[in-house]
Nucleic acid binder design. Structure first.
Lengths: 121, 121
DNA sequence: CAGGATCCGCCACGATACTG
DNA sequence: CAGTATCGTGGCGGATCCTG
C-alpha cells in the first residue's frame, strides 16, 4: 500500500490532485476496500475477515488493518480473554469515505455498462 | 498500474467493492490523476505534460497515457507533421470521473483538517 | 517532438512456520 | 484466536540511450 506521492511543493494548481492521491493511498491496498465493506456492517473479528476476504494472507490482513487503523478508518477493540478476541469496526469517517467511493459504481454503470436504455441482459 | 483484483466469483455482497476497485485501478498510476487534471483543462501535448508533471520519466508518461487511452479516459490525436505533434484530451467520462474523485477533497477537508471552526490543535 | 528499448531497484503482496 | 517472523516474487516506476 501507500504508493509514493511526489507531492512535495507542487505548483498549487495540482494541490487538489495531491489531496485526492493521499486519500486514495489510504485505501490503495488490494484488500482495503473489502475490509471497509465488512467492517461498515458492524464489528468483525480477525478470523471472520480472514474468511470473508477469500484468499488474503494473515500477514497482509494484519498490515492492512494496522494501516487503516493508523489512518483513523478502523477502531480496534481487544478483549483480554483466553482465547483472545479482537474486533474491528469502521469509524464514521470510514463510513463517509466508503459511501463516497461506492458512488463510483454510478459512474461505472453509466459507462462501461452494456446499453442502459431499454433491454436488460 | 493495474493492481491485481482478486474479483473472481466473489460472494455478490462484495460485487460493489469489485467495481470500485476496477475503477480505482484505472487511475492507480502514480501520475494518472495529474495527467487527468491537466487534460481536463484542454488539449495538451506530450512535452507539456512532461513539464507540468515535474519529475515524470518519458517511459512512464507514455505508459500511463496509453493505459488511460485504453480505458477510454483520454483521446490521442496525432498531427502528421514534422516535427510530430500529439495532443491528449480527457474524454467526457474522464471529466465525470475526475469530478467524482475530486469530491474526495471534501471528505479530506471534513476530517484530517485542522479544525475549521475556532481553536486549532 | 514523441516515443521505443533495456536494465534495475524498490515495495506490495504471497506462502509458510512459529507463538502468547 | 490473533497475530509475528522469514523468505520469495511480480511488476510499477525510474534512468539512460536510441530513433522516425
Amino acid at each position: 500500500m501507500s504508493r509514493r506521492n511526489a507531492c512535495s511543493a507542487e505548483e498549487a494548481a495540482s494541490r487538489e490532485v495531491c489531496t485526492v492521491l493521499d486519500v486514495l493511498n489510504r485505501v490503495s491496498g488490494k484488500w482495503s476496500l473489502g475490509i471497509l465493506s465488512e467492517t461498515t456492517r458492524g464489528p468483525v473479528r480477525f478470523a471472520e475477515l480472514e474468511r470473508s476476504l477469500n484468499g488474503i494472507s494473515r500477514r497482509i490482513l494484519t498490515l492492512t488493518l494496522r494501516q487503516l487503523e493508523e489512518n483513523g478508518l478502523l477502531t480496534r477493540t481487544v478483549y483480554p480473554t483466553v482465547p483472545p478476541k479482537v474486533e474491528y469496526t469502521a469509524t464514521d469517517q470510514a463510513r463517509e469515505l466508503y459511501a463516497q467511493l461506492t458512488g463510483l459504481t454510478a459512474w461505472a454503470a453509466r459507462h462501461s455498462a452494456p446499453a442502459p436504455h431499454a433491454d436488460a441482459p
